[in-house]
Structures are given as C-alpha cells and as structure tokens.
C-alpha cells in the first residue's frame, strides 16, 4: 500500500494484545490507506476480532496504533465520530421500530444523517415502521448496515458481517456496502472466513494465523508475487519438486494447480498455464503449519 502519511487511515507498528499470558494479536505491523476494501482473513481464534476491537479502542494494546491519526484507547470518543464499527455480536433491540432506531442514532451520533439512513433503507425491503423482531436475519443485517453507513465516517469496521446469512442476503449486504460506502476515499475492513466470496471485492488482504500477520498485501501485488500454474497430471511430479512451492492441489480432472511464492524456474513455468492465484489457496497455504504443506501430495 503506497500512500503518503495523511492518506493512511490506520497505522500499526509492533501491535500486541495479550489476554493473560496468551498473545491474541502478536507483533503486527501494517497500514491501511484511504479508499481501500480490506479483507481481514483468518480461522476462528486467529485474532481478527481482537484486532478490530483494538482498532476502536475496546482492547488495550502494546506497540503503536493510530486510527485516523488518533490513539483509539485514549481518544475513543473522538475516533468514533469518524470510524464506525459493527461487532460480530451486534444486535438491534428486538422491540424497536426502525424509525425509532433512526431517531436514537440521530440523538447519539453527531455525524449521523437520518435522511441518509432513510435513503439507504429505501434500497432494502425494510420498512421504517417495521419492528426489528419482525425482520429476517438478512433484513436486520441490511438495516444495521444502513444505520452505520449513514454516519459520515472515513473508516468502517465490520466483524463477520454476513455470518449466518443466506446467499442472497449476503449479496444484498455487499452490494449496498460497495455501492453506498466505497467512494474511493472511505475505507472498510471486513473480517470473514468466507474467503472466496469476497475475494473479488477486496483491494487488500490482511491474513492472520494464530495472532501473527502472515500476509499484508494488495490484490495486485498478490498477482505479481505469487505464481499459480494449472497443469496436467502428467507433469505433477515436476511441479511438486519445483521451488518455491507453497501449496499443491490435485484437482478433479485437469484441475491440478501449483502455487509458488515467487517465480519457479522457466522450464517449470512452461509446463503449466499461469492463473490468478486464488485467495483460498493462499489462505490454506499460509494459515497452517508450513511443515504440513510439503506432505500434501
């Protein structure tokens, strides 16, 4: 992520969060520029939620962390004017009507626009007089997004926003997010383990494995750094023996694919056809113990 200092919305350096003796987030250094869609990927327990909490001042961290130029722990109130957050445990009060939630938000948040919220809700099937308890899970998620996206903020943090939603609800959720939020200036961080689903949405990836950052790269740079080759079964042994192999996936039919971290020798490259490296393959390769990888084949 190349950007000047003021274009960086998040800057973390040697960030560590401890729960007792355990380091839930361990020595992370990364930055997030403006106008980006960042996927925070990792298995359960990898530290995604902890990192997001630290970014909005809900978890005490060592090292340095600046979000929108502020210290999230110390300047939490100021930060939450310009950063919005939907935690993974978020709920809307079941008894409330949507219109009442808009009134509540308008009273609570100085940068919330009730008009904007109503405008966003018009693209959903959620009615202003609907009570939350009558809405489907997908509609609740959309209502929640509409309320949060109506805040004139620069950074949105979404922790597993589509967990438990069916495919159409997930699509509607991301459609609203991209169409209504991503304007080239504002950024959003989305944590998920449904990697393949949001791959094409992302501009950058932060990948966590057991608290450590194993990848922090733009999708463009992923295409340059990693080389994925699809090939026939006949040349499988040469592929597997080549360096620097990261992962090997024997597919059904001709779908064999080798993933290299860097370019393999030219004679090996000539044996296969270059593809876009899939984020799922990278995820599987980088979020397991490396010594297990070579025994795959």
């Amino acid at each position: 992520m190349n950007a000047t200092e003021q274009d960086l919305l998040v800057q973390a350096s040697h960030l560590t969060v401890r729960y007792g003796a355990r380091r839930a987030v361990d020595d992370l250094s990364f930055s997030i520029a403006k106008g980006r869609v960042v996927g925070l990927l990792g298995h359960n327990g990898a530290g995604k939620t902890t990192l997001m909490k630290a970014m909005v001042g809900l978890a005490g961290a060592e090292g340095s962390l600046q979000v929108l130029g502020l210290d999230p722990r110390r300047d939490r109130v100021a930060l939450l004017q310009s950063a919005c957050y939907i935690p993974d445990v978020a709920t809307l009060p079941r008894w409330a009507r949507v219109e009442e939630l808009i009134t509540l938000m308008a009273g609570l948040h100085p940068k919330f626009s009730a008009d904007r919220a109503r405008q966003l809700l018009r693209r959903t099937s959620v009615g202003l007089s609907d009570k939350v308890k009558t809405l489907s899970k997908g509609m609740v998620a959309q209502a929640h997004l509409a309320l949060v996206a109506a805040i004139d903020a620069r950074l949105m943090i979404l922790d597993e926003p589509t967990l438990g939603l069916d495919v159409l609800s997930r699509k509607a959720f991301y459609e609203m997010l991209v169409d209504e939020w991503c304007d080239g200036e504002r950024s959003v961080v989305i944590s998920t383990h449904q990697v393949e689903e949001i791959e094409s949405l992302l501009s950058d990836v932060l990948m966590l494995n057991e608290g450590k950052l194993v990848l922090s790269l733009s999708l463009e740079d992923i295409d340059t750094r990693f080389v994925a080759l699809s090939h026939d079964a006949a040349v499988a042994e040469q592929m597997v023996a080549a360096h620097p192999l990261l992962r090997y996936r024997a597919g059904p039919g001709p779908g064999h694919a080798a993933l290299f971290d860097g370019a393999p020798p030219a004679h090996v490259q000539a044996l296969g056809q270059r593809m876009r490296p899939s984020l799922v393959d990278l995820f599987v390769a980088l979020t397991r113990k490396p010594e297990l990888d070579r025994t795959q084949f």
């Binding site: 869609v37 991301y174 459609e175 209504e180 080239g184 094409s200």
Partner: peptide
C-alpha cells in the same frame, strides 16, 4: 459503484 455493487467487484477492477 453501481457496477461494483452489481457484480460484487472492487471499484478499481
């Protein structure tokens, strides 16, 4: 943005 939303693609793409 409309196309990005429709096809679920990053706006840069």
């Amino acid at each position: 943005r409309a196309l990005a939303g429709q096809y679920l693609l990053n706006p840069l793409t």
